[in-house]
Nucleic acid binder design. Structure first.
Lengths: 286, 286
DNA sequence: GTTCCGCATGAATCGATAG
DNA sequence: ACTATCGATTCATGCGGAA
């Protein structure tokens, strides 16, 4: 089976028009937050954010299959001491376009940005808004089950803290090979709260989310051979993970720098990850 | 110093009018969820929730001190496969009343309600919306500091598992005396994500939160002798915790059953509440 | 091969200063 | 007055080098 991984250079509000109706199984993206990352993107003013995004979401609604899902990673920024309401307004306006606001997952960023202010704590969570075209959408819950129970406690207690941390980080969201042979014993369905750290290792490109995040949603909402779309693919995390998992993908990127970075291929650090995962998957099958 | 703990029977939209302007330091409440708790409250239809709540929030705006804070625990329910948007609309409408939407804390319920659905995972988080009258409000961040990750890794590792458990259980949410002398060195400010288990004890009340939740916010936003208000006090958690922490409090409850429950002290540990209420009534007669 | 330690690095926010 | 820029603050994490 051949996996297609397309990267398109250009403004997604234009390039999306070239995609066919009802052709995508999962849209997964983290658009530039309002007034953030203005060194790499233009920087959209909070007051104009909804107006800027609606033409894009309209196209996304068109290209998504009726059984497909749209996951939008977003967080409102503070303006004059208040959380701005553009995300709330965006949800309301997208529903008027025809989207169903099915669920809101919570991404708890365990390593959030530091700092201290007299009237505010560090912001350590972001929204993962789930939208659908229809109440009947595809969902493969078994693909993201997690180990749990007394069994996990007693086994994991015998490992040192660094062992656990290191093995988790190596394989992304799951557990490392040391623990992998216990995995098939007991598993439970997860909740709508995700605990994941951001990856700060990569110097040149600011990865929007860790690989474990797209991996979780791709497993949950697609099968091998399905199509994944990220209209703000940035450093290419979504495309890379989709490819790793045997999903076809389309990534659109406005900024030529990121476009070239993704096209130039998987860097060596990621190659290691892929090898680790293969070994882990093979180990699980036994 | 005498601590006053008032419990008032009645509809808070009426009873709130009897409270003075700018008299409350912290409002902390978990109102009945839309249509969800038909058995215990009237059951407000999701489409009428905003309309129902706005007259109440208007009164709350009046009674809150300019330096005070309003924490609203709320979560939208699922209607026809979608998250209803009444919470989003409520935030937008409350801002029009004059409220500032300062922050949204996340309550991660570690032991959320069990169950399984074909297109949805268990809901394990709720919103804790922070509203203020003014950008300058009082906040006592030092009162809720937590041990840092570094401290936990390097120091806690050397303690045995039983030592840790024993010390934690002694002091409840805090840490034991054996470790306490390290605390002032290695403490960090928390984030806006709260990890707290729900309490199973309060089965009788519809929307009860664990004591640790009001405790955290009461410590964060008030000092001893300040006034705490819960317009939907239910089984009395807010009042009980406020009393324990030496804060004056007013609890309003519409349902006679809960009112009687708090008054009669169903739990023996809450006997002091009645005494306090009697003292309050005598105080009012004067 | 493991474990430990040091260090750079963030999708942040506020308040002061400058145009 | 109103917006743009800058410095100060702060901590979980991964990586590289050393024991």
């Amino acid at each position: 089976m051949t996996v297609s991984t397309k990267i398109i250079l250009g403004d997604c509000s234009e390039k999306l028009k070239e995609l066919g109706d009802d052709s995508i199984d999962l849209i997964l993206t983290s658009p530039p937050y309002a007034d953030q990352r203005r060194n790499t993107y233009g920087g959209i003013h909070p007051d104009q954010y909804v107006e800027w995004f609606l033409p894009i979401s309209e196209q996304l609604l068109r290209v998504l299959k009726p059984t497909g899902t749209f996951i939008l990673n977003i967080k409102e920024r503070v303006v004059k001491g208040e959380r701005h309401i553009y995300v709330l307004e965006l949800i309301i306006e997208m529903r008027k376009q025809g989207w169903l606001w099915t669920e809101e997952f919570m991404w708890h960023k365990r390593n959030c940005y530091p700092g201290r202010w007299p009237n505010r704590f560090r912001d350590s969570w972001e929204r993962l808004l789930q939208f659908n075209k229809d109440r009947k959408f595809r969902m493969f819950q078994e693909a993201v089950m997690v180990p749990t129970g007394d069994w996990a406690k007693t086994r994991l207690r015998n490992l040192s803290e660094t062992d656990k941390v290191r093995d988790e980080s190596k394989v992304g969201s799951g557990f490392g090979k040391n623990i992998s042979h216990w995995l098939d014993r007991r598993r439970a369905y997860p909740t709508n709260v995700l605990h994941m750290s951001t990856e700060c290792g990569n110097k040149n490109h600011s990865a929007a989310f860790p690989e474990a995040l797209p991996e979780w949603f791709i497993k949950l909402f697609t099968q091998e051979g399905d199509w994944v779309l990220d209209p703000f693919v940035g450093s290419g995390t979504t495309s890379r993970v989709a490819q790793k998992l045997g999903r076809n993908s389309i990534g659109i990127e406005f900024h030529p720098h990121y476009y070239e970075m993704v096209r130039s291929g998987v860097d060596k650090g990621k190659q290691y990850l892929i090898e680790k995962r293969k070994a882990y998957e093979e180990d699980r099958r036994r």
